[in-house]
C-alpha cells in the first residue's frame, strides 16, 4: 500500500505540472500573436516596396523624357520625336464615351435589380450571372465587341466600338456597386417618402438615388480606372494600328495610352522603351487621380450623411 502522504504529493506534482504547461502554452500563444503581427507587416511593406521601387525606376529612366513636347507630339518612327498626343486624346475620348454609355445603363440595371425585381428564381439567375460576368476575362469581351459592334453593327475599328466594348466590360462592376450603394439607404427613408403619398419612382428619384449618388459615382470611377488601363480587348477590336491623327468623331480609328505603351515596348530599339516608361507615368497619374477622386467622394459622403 502506498502511504497517503505520497499520494497527496503526487497529486500536488501533477497540478504543478499542469500549471507549468498552461504557462508555456499561453506564452506560445503570445509569441504566435507577435509573429503573425510582424508577418502581416512584412507582407504589407513587401507589396508597397515593390510598387515604390517600380515607380522610382520609371521616374529615373523616363523622368527626363517627360516634357511638353512628349505630350503634344504625334507618333513617329524616330523615338526622340515621338509623342503621346494621339494616345492621351484617344484615352480621354474612350473614357467619356464609355461613361456616357455605361453610366445610364449600369444605374438603370442596378436600380431595377435592387428596387423593382421581385425576389424569385429569375432574380437569382440574373444575380448569379452578373457576378459571373464581372469575372469574365477582358479578351473575351474584346472578341464579343469585334463580332457584335465592329462587324455586325458595322462600327468598324472605331472609337464607338472601343467604347461599347469597354462599357460592356465594366457594366457588371457598375451594376454591383450601384446596388451596394442603394442598399445603404435605410428602409425608413423610403417608408417616410411613401407615407407622404410619393410613388415608387418619386421615392427612388428624389430620395434613394440622391442619397446613394456618391457611392454610385465612386463605383463608376473605380470601374473606369480599370477600363483606362485595358489593352487586350482594344487590341482584339483592331486598335493596334498606326494612327497619326487625333480622332474627330466617334467613327474614327483611335489609339489609347496602354496600346501606345504596348506598341513601344514591343519595338527592338532601346529608345522606345524609355518612351514607354514615360507614357506609363502619364497613365499611372491618370489612374491615381481617378482613384483619388473616388476616395475623396466617399470621404465627403460619409461626412455629410450619417444614418
Amino acid at each position: 500500500m502506498i502511504p497517503e502522504k505520497s499520494i497527496k504529493s503526487m497529486r500536488r506534482q501533477k497540478i504543478l505540472l499542469a500549471r507549468l504547461q498552461t504557462i508555456t502554452r499561453t506564452r506560445y500563444y503570445k509569441y504566435q500573436d507577435i509573429a503573425f503581427k510582424y508577418f502581416g507587416l512584412f507582407c504589407t511593406i513587401l507589396g508597397i516596396a515593390i510598387l515604390v521601387l517600380f515607380l522610382a525606376n520609371l521616374i529615373y529612366t523616363a523622368g527626363a523624357r517627360l516634357d511638353w513636347g512628349f505630350m503634344t507630339n504625334l507618333p513617329s518612327r524616330k523615338a526622340a520625336k515621338a509623342g503621346i498626343y494621339t494616345a492621351w486624346v484617344g484615352t480621354l475620348w474612350i473614357l467619356s464615351l464609355t461613361t456616357l454609355i455605361a453610366l445610364p445603363i449600369g444605374i438603370g440595371a442596378g436600380v431595377y435589380l435592387e428596387e423593382y425585381n421581385k425576389k424569385g428564381k429569375l432574380a437569382n439567375i440574373l444575380e448569379i450571372n452578373i457576378a459571373n460576368l464581372a469575372g469574365v476575362p477582358s479578351i473575351v469581351y474584346g472578341l464579343l465587341g469585334l463580332e457584335l459592334f465592329a462587324r455586325f453593327i458595322g462600327a468598324g475599328e472605331s472609337l464607338l466600338t472601343g467604347a461599347l466594348t469597354l462599357a460592356l466590360l465594366i457594366l457588371p462592376v457598375i451594376i454591383v456597386s450601384t446596388r451596394e450603394a442603394l442598399k445603404t439607404v435605410p428602409y425608413t427613408i423610403r417608408e417616410a417618402s411613401y407615407a407622404l403619398g410619393a410613388t415608387k419612382w418619386q421615392t427612388i428619384w428624389n430620395q434613394v438615388l440622391p442619397a446613394s449618388m456618391a457611392g454610385i459615382f465612386t463605383g463608376m470611377i473605380l470601374a473606369l480606372s480599370r477600363a483606362v488601363g485595358e489593352t487586350a480587348p482594344l487590341i482584339v477590336i483592331g486598335a493596334l494600328a498606326f494612327v497619326p491623327f487625333v480622332p474627330s468623331s466617334v467613327f474614327d480609328s483611335f489609339t489609347v495610352l496602354p496600346i501606345q505603351i504596348f506598341n513601344w515596348v514591343s519595338r527592338p530599339q532601346k529608345e522606345f522603351s524609355v518612351n514607354a516608361a514615360a507614357a506609363i507615368i502619364v497613365l499611372l497619374s491618370i489612374t491615381f487621380m481617378m482613384n483619388g477622386i473616388a476616395v475623396y467622394l466617399r470621404y465627403r459622403w460619409q461626412k455629410k450623411i450619417k444614418w
Partner: peptide
C-alpha cells in the same frame, strides 16, 4: 399622415423636408 418610431428625416435641408410632400403632390 404618418409619423414613425425613429425620427426619419430625409438627408436634405429642413425646408426641403417639409416641402417634399407638396413637391410629390
Amino acid at each position: 399622415g404618418m409619423v414613425f418610431q425613429k425620427p426619419n428625416p430625409f438627408p436634405k435641408s429642413i425646408f426641403e423636408n417639409v416641402a417634399y410632400g407638396m413637391k410629390v403632390n
